[in-house]
C-alpha cells in the first residue's frame, strides 16, 4: 500500500473544516477558561471558608474524573435538569471548565511563588487587596504562569479530540470521516497529526512571544542567587 498524497489533497476540505472548528472551540474555551481561572485560584486563598471549600471541591472534581465523563455529564445531565444543551454548547462548556480548573492550578502555584512578605508589606503600606494583586502579585507571577498555561492550552487542544464523540465536527471527527470513506489509515493519520502539530506549535509560538513581552520582575531572593552565580 503506497503512501499517496492525493488522498490527503482530496480529503482536504473535510480536514480544513475540522481544523477550523477545533481552533475556534479551543480559542473560545481558552479565553473563557482563563477568565474563570483567576477567581477559582483567588477563591482558594480567600479568608471565608465557603469560597475556599467550593473552589477546592470544583478543582478536585474536575481533576479526578475523566474528561470524557465530564463531557457526558454536561451533555446528558444538564438537559435532564431543564437546561437545553447542544453538542456545541456542551463541548465548549466542558472544555472551558476543564481548562479553567487546570489554568487555576497554574495561577495558584504562581501566586504562591510570590513571597508572602511582599503581600504583607503592600497591605501594611495601605494598599487594598485588589491593588496589591494588580500591582505586586500579578506582574511578578506572569513569568511563572505563562509556560504552564501554554502547556495546558496544548493539552486542551489534544483533549478536544474527545468532542467528536458527542458529534462536534472537529479535527478528529474529520479524521474518522476520512478514515471511514478512504480506508487510508496512514495518510489520514499523517494529515491529522500534522494539523494537530500545526495548532499546538502556533500556541507554543504565541506563548513564547507573550513571555518575552512580560517584564520579568524577579524576587530579591532569585536576584541574589542570580548575582551570586554571575560572580562565580
Amino acid at each position: 500500500m503506497p503512501f499517496s498524497l492525493s488522498i490527503i489533497a482530496e480529503a482536504w476540505p473535510t480536514f480544513e473544516a475540522g481544523l477550523i472548528t477545533t481552533a475556534i472551540f479551543c480559542s473560545v474555551a481558552s479565553v473563557l477558561g482563563l477568565v474563570l481561572a483567576v477567581p477559582i485560584a483567588l477563591a482558594q486563598f480567600s479568608r471565608s471558608w465557603p469560597w475556599r471549600v467550593s473552589a477546592k471541591v470544583l478543582v478536585e472534581i474536575v481533576r479526578d474524573t475523566p474528561f470524557l465523563v465530564q463531557v457526558f455529564v454536561i451533555y446528558f445531565v444538564f438537559p435532564a435538569t431543564g437546561i437545553p444543551m447542544s453538542s456545541t454548547v456542551a463541548g465548549i462548556l466542558a472544555l472551558t471548565i476543564h481548562g479553567a480548573v487546570y489554568f487555576s492550578e497554574s495561577i495558584r502555584g504562581a501566586i504562591l511563588s510570590v513571597p508572602k512578605g511582599q503581600v504583607d508589606a503592600a497591605r501594611a503600606a495601605g494598599m487594598s487587596y485588589p491593588l496589591t494583586m494588580r500591582r505586586i502579585v500579578f506582574p511578578q507571577m506572569m513569568g511563572y504562569v505563562l509556560p504552564p498555561i501554554g502547556n495546558q492550552i496544548v493539552g486542551l487542544i489534544k483533549d478536544s479530540a474527545v468532542l467528536s464523540i458527542i458529534s462536534v465536527p472537529e479535527l478528529s471527527m474529520a479524521f474518522q470521516n476520512v478514515l471511514g470513506t478512504t480506508f487510508a489509515a496512514p495518510e489520514a493519520f499523517v494529515a491529522v497529526a500534522v494539523l494537530y502539530w500545526l495548532l499546538t506549535s502556533a500556541v507554543t509560538l504565541v506563548m513564547s512571544r507573550l513571555e518575552q513581552l512580560t517584564p520579568t520582575h524577579r524576587s530579591t531572593q532569585e536576584m541574589t542567587s542570580l548575582l551570586a552565580k554571575a560572580d562565580r
Binding site: I157, K158, D159, S160, A161, V162, S164, S172, F175, Q176, L179, A185, F189, V192, A193, Y196, W197, T200
Partner: peptide, 13 residues
Amino acid sequence: GTPLFIQILIVYY
C-alpha cells in the same frame, strides 16, 4: 503531539 484518542483509533483500526 497527537491526541491519545486518535492514537487509540489508529492502534485499533
